[in-house]
Structure formats: C-alpha cells, structure tokens
Amino acid sequence: MPSTPPPGILEPFLAAADAAASSRPDVDAETARELMAEAASMLHDSLALDHLDEHDLPQVVAALAADLTAVDPGAAVRDRAAAAGDDPALHDPDGVRGAYLVVVQVLGL
C-alpha cells in the first residue's frame, strides 16, 4: 500500500497540477491532481529523493512539479538532469542529477 507523501512533496505537485489546469484548457483539473498525487506517492515510496539535503530537496521538488506538467515531461526532467551540474545553487549537483535520472526511471518517462 502506498504511503502518503509529505506535504513538502505533495503540495508543490498539486499546485503545479492546478496551475496546468488553469492555464491549459486541454487539462482536466481533477485528473491532473490525481496524476500528480500519484507521481508524488511513487517518488516518495521509491526513495528517489531521500538522499537530498534540506537545501536541495525543495528545489528539486519545485523543478519536478513544473517539469511533470510540461507537454513532454520526460524531456523536461532529462534536460533538468543534464543542467544540474552547472547549477551553483545546489549543494550536491551530482546527487541532484542522479535523483532526476532515477525519477525518469521510477515514473517511466
């Protein structure tokens, strides 16, 4: 049975679903929220983000929330992974890059 993701993961994902539904007429709000809640649960259960520190985790979650509502979420997350090494704001760019690549696998993107 899937566990409930913490608010720090679930809330940004739901907010991104709401934003996508309000800005794109082809997106059903209820379906978007269900899919993003499921993605948050899958990532939480997979432990894909567990190694990230308190600084990097919120940045990764916010980026994933945006990327997963993109027209091509797989490409968006892979592009984000490729750029992680160049982000001086991250404490652990290699760990963040790895997390993005694991997310691609966990979510089947």
Rank of each mutant, 00 (worst) to 15 (best):
A63K: 04
D53L: 09
H44F: 13
V71R: 15
H44M: 09
M1N: 13
A37C: 13
Q59G: 11
P5H: 10
R80C: 05
G85S: 14
F13M: 15
S23D: 13
R33L: 02
L14D: 00
E38C: 05
D87V: 11
A21T: 07
E11W: 09
A81I: 08
D50S: 14
A89G: 14
D72E: 14
V60A: 01
A40N: 01
L109Y: 14
E30D: 14
D53Y: 12
R78G: 01
E30R: 14
A21N: 05
V27D: 07
Y100P: 01
T69F: 03
P93Q: 13
E38M: 11
S22L: 09
Q105T: 11
H44W: 14
T4H: 13
T4F: 14
P12R: 00
E30K: 13
H44G: 10
G108T: 06
D18C: 04
F13C: 09
S3E: 15
A40D: 06
V60H: 02
S3G: 15
H91P: 06
V96R: 01
V102F: 05
D72S: 13
V77R: 04
S41C: 05
A89H: 10
S46E: 09
A20F: 05
E54V: 08
A81W: 09
A40Q: 02
A99Y: 01
A29W: 01
E34M: 12
A17P: 08
A17L: 02
D56M: 00
G98F: 04
